[in-house]
Lab assay of single mutants.
Amino acid sequence: HESKLSILMDMFPAISKSKLQVHLLENNNDLDLTIGLLL
C-alpha cells in the first residue's frame, strides 16, 4: 500500500496531493476508493 501511494503521489501535482491525503483520511486510508475519486 505504501509504495502504491508513493507512486500515486508522484503522479499528481501538489494541490491534488493534498486532496488525496484528505480523501485518504476521510475514507480511513481506502486507497482504491480514493483512486476512484481522483480518476
Rank of each mutant, 00 (worst) to 15 (best):
residue 12 F to N: 01
residue 39 L to V: 11
residue 32 D to H: 09
residue 13 P to Q: 02
residue 14 A to S: 14
residue 23 H to C: 06
residue 2 E to C: 15
residue 12 F to E: 01
residue 8 L to T: 02
residue 11 M to T: 10
residue 1 H to A: 15
residue 29 N to E: 09
residue 18 S to W: 06
residue 6 S to W: 03
residue 9 M to W: 05
residue 12 F to A: 01
residue 10 D to V: 05
residue 7 I to S: 08
residue 33 L to G: 13
residue 14 A to R: 11
residue 8 L to Q: 00
residue 22 V to K: 13
residue 2 E to M: 15
residue 13 P to L: 01
residue 12 F to P: 03
residue 6 S to V: 08
residue 18 S to I: 15
residue 38 L to R: 01
residue 21 Q to N: 15
residue 4 K to R: 11
residue 21 Q to F: 12
residue 5 L to K: 01
residue 22 V to T: 12
residue 30 D to T: 01
residue 15 I to H: 12
residue 18 S to Q: 14
residue 18 S to K: 11
residue 36 G to V: 04
residue 17 K to Q: 12
residue 10 D to W: 02
residue 8 L to V: 03
residue 14 A to F: 11
residue 5 L to D: 00
residue 39 L to Y: 12
residue 38 L to D: 09
residue 3 S to G: 07
residue 29 N to S: 10
residue 6 S to E: 08
residue 38 L to W: 00
residue 25 L to W: 10
residue 34 T to M: 00
residue 23 H to K: 04
residue 28 N to R: 09
residue 37 L to P: 09
residue 35 I to Q: 08
residue 34 T to L: 02
residue 11 M to K: 07
residue 30 D to H: 07
residue 22 V to I: 13
residue 15 I to F: 15
residue 38 L to C: 08
residue 28 N to A: 11
residue 29 N to P: 05
residue 36 G to W: 03
residue 19 K to T: 12
residue 20 L to I: 15
residue 38 L to A: 04
residue 30 D to A: 05
residue 33 L to I: 09
residue 13 P to K: 01
residue 26 E to A: 13
residue 39 L to R: 15
residue 36 G to Q: 12
residue 21 Q to I: 15
residue 24 L to S: 00
residue 25 L to G: 12
residue 16 S to P: 13
residue 38 L to V: 05
residue 11 M to E: 05
residue 19 K to D: 09
residue 29 N to L: 08
residue 4 K to Q: 11
residue 20 L to R: 01
residue 8 L to G: 00
residue 37 L to A: 13
residue 32 D to S: 07
residue 3 S to A: 07
residue 27 N to W: 04
residue 21 Q to V: 08
residue 13 P to M: 02
residue 6 S to L: 09
residue 28 N to G: 13
residue 12 F to Y: 15
residue 14 A to V: 09
residue 23 H to E: 07
residue 7 I to L: 11
residue 11 M to Q: 09
residue 6 S to H: 04
residue 26 E to G: 08
residue 39 L to M: 15
residue 9 M to Q: 12
residue 2 E to G: 08
residue 19 K to M: 09
residue 18 S to V: 15
residue 28 N to Q: 10
residue 32 D to E: 10
residue 33 L to E: 13
residue 5 L to Q: 01
residue 5 L to R: 00
residue 11 M to S: 04
residue 33 L to W: 04
residue 20 L to K: 01
residue 2 E to R: 14
residue 18 S to Y: 09
residue 28 N to H: 07
residue 4 K to N: 11
residue 5 L to V: 12
residue 16 S to R: 07
residue 35 I to G: 03
residue 6 S to Q: 12
residue 34 T to E: 00
residue 23 H to A: 10
residue 10 D to I: 08
residue 18 S to P: 06
residue 23 H to S: 11
residue 24 L to Y: 03
residue 26 E to W: 02
residue 16 S to V: 05
residue 24 L to E: 01
residue 4 K to M: 15
residue 12 F to G: 00
residue 15 I to P: 00
residue 7 I to T: 13
residue 24 L to K: 02
residue 3 S to E: 08
residue 5 L to P: 02
residue 33 L to S: 11
residue 39 L to W: 10
residue 9 M to Y: 10
residue 4 K to E: 12
residue 25 L to M: 13
residue 8 L to E: 00
residue 5 L to W: 01
residue 36 G to C: 11
residue 2 E to V: 06
residue 37 L to R: 14
residue 9 M to I: 14
residue 16 S to Q: 10
residue 18 S to A: 10
residue 21 Q to S: 13
residue 37 L to W: 08
residue 37 L to H: 11
residue 8 L to P: 00
residue 20 L to G: 01
residue 31 L to A: 04
residue 2 E to Q: 14
residue 6 S to P: 04
residue 13 P to E: 04
residue 14 A to P: 04
residue 4 K to V: 04
residue 7 I to K: 14
residue 2 E to P: 11
residue 15 I to R: 04
residue 20 L to Q: 02
residue 20 L to M: 06
residue 11 M to W: 04
residue 26 E to D: 07
residue 32 D to P: 06
residue 5 L to M: 11
residue 17 K to T: 05
residue 14 A to M: 08
residue 6 S to K: 09
residue 19 K to Q: 11
residue 3 S to P: 03
residue 27 N to K: 05
residue 21 Q to P: 00
residue 11 M to G: 02
residue 23 H to L: 07
residue 25 L to Q: 14
residue 27 N to Q: 08
residue 37 L to G: 12
residue 30 D to V: 03
residue 11 M to V: 03
residue 14 A to L: 10
residue 9 M to N: 04
residue 36 G to M: 05
residue 10 D to Y: 15
residue 13 P to C: 02
residue 22 V to E: 10
residue 35 I to P: 01
residue 4 K to S: 12
residue 15 I to G: 02
residue 15 I to E: 11
residue 27 N to T: 05
residue 25 L to N: 05
residue 1 H to P: 14
residue 10 D to L: 04
residue 8 L to K: 00
residue 38 L to N: 03
residue 3 S to T: 04
residue 7 I to D: 15
residue 25 L to T: 13
residue 35 I to H: 04
residue 24 L to V: 01
residue 29 N to V: 05
residue 21 Q to L: 06
residue 31 L to T: 04
residue 21 Q to D: 08
residue 34 T to S: 06
residue 7 I to P: 02
residue 20 L to S: 02
residue 9 M to S: 12
residue 16 S to L: 04
residue 35 I to A: 11
residue 24 L to I: 00
residue 37 L to E: 12
residue 24 L to W: 00
residue 23 H to P: 02
residue 37 L to Q: 12
residue 16 S to G: 06
residue 24 L to T: 03
residue 24 L to R: 01
residue 22 V to Q: 13
residue 38 L to T: 02
residue 34 T to G: 02
residue 15 I to V: 08
residue 8 L to F: 02
residue 22 V to C: 14
residue 18 S to E: 13
residue 36 G to K: 14
residue 27 N to G: 06
residue 23 H to R: 08
residue 3 S to V: 05
residue 31 L to V: 15
residue 17 K to C: 04
residue 26 E to F: 03
residue 15 I to A: 07
residue 39 L to A: 09
residue 25 L to S: 11
residue 29 N to K: 04
residue 30 D to K: 07
residue 36 G to N: 10
residue 23 H to V: 07
residue 11 M to L: 06
residue 21 Q to G: 07
residue 38 L to S: 01
residue 32 D to Y: 02
residue 8 L to R: 01
residue 16 S to W: 02
residue 6 S to Y: 15
residue 1 H to W: 13
residue 27 N to P: 00
residue 32 D to L: 04
residue 12 F to R: 01
residue 12 F to W: 03
residue 33 L to T: 12
residue 13 P to A: 03
residue 17 K to P: 09
residue 39 L to S: 14
residue 30 D to Q: 06
residue 28 N to C: 05
residue 37 L to V: 10
residue 16 S to E: 09
residue 9 M to V: 12
residue 26 E to M: 06
residue 32 D to N: 14
residue 37 L to T: 14
residue 10 D to K: 06
residue 21 Q to A: 07
residue 17 K to M: 05
residue 4 K to H: 14
residue 21 Q to T: 08
residue 27 N to C: 11
residue 36 G to L: 04
residue 27 N to M: 06
residue 4 K to C: 10
residue 27 N to V: 04
residue 2 E to S: 05
residue 36 G to E: 14
residue 31 L to Q: 03
residue 25 L to D: 06
residue 19 K to R: 12
residue 6 S to G: 10
residue 7 I to V: 14
residue 19 K to E: 10
residue 29 N to G: 13
residue 23 H to W: 05
residue 33 L to R: 14
residue 3 S to C: 07
residue 28 N to P: 02
residue 31 L to H: 02
residue 36 G to A: 13
residue 19 K to F: 08
residue 19 K to W: 06
residue 17 K to R: 10
residue 32 D to W: 03
residue 33 L to A: 13
residue 14 A to E: 14
residue 6 S to R: 11
residue 5 L to H: 00
residue 18 S to G: 09
residue 4 K to Y: 14
residue 33 L to K: 13
residue 35 I to V: 10
residue 10 D to T: 04
residue 26 E to V: 05
residue 13 P to T: 01
residue 5 L to C: 05
residue 39 L to P: 06
residue 2 E to T: 15
residue 15 I to M: 09
residue 35 I to Y: 06
residue 36 G to D: 13
residue 19 K to V: 11
residue 12 F to D: 00
residue 34 T to R: 00
residue 12 F to V: 00
residue 35 I to K: 14
residue 13 P to F: 01
residue 35 I to T: 10
residue 30 D to W: 01
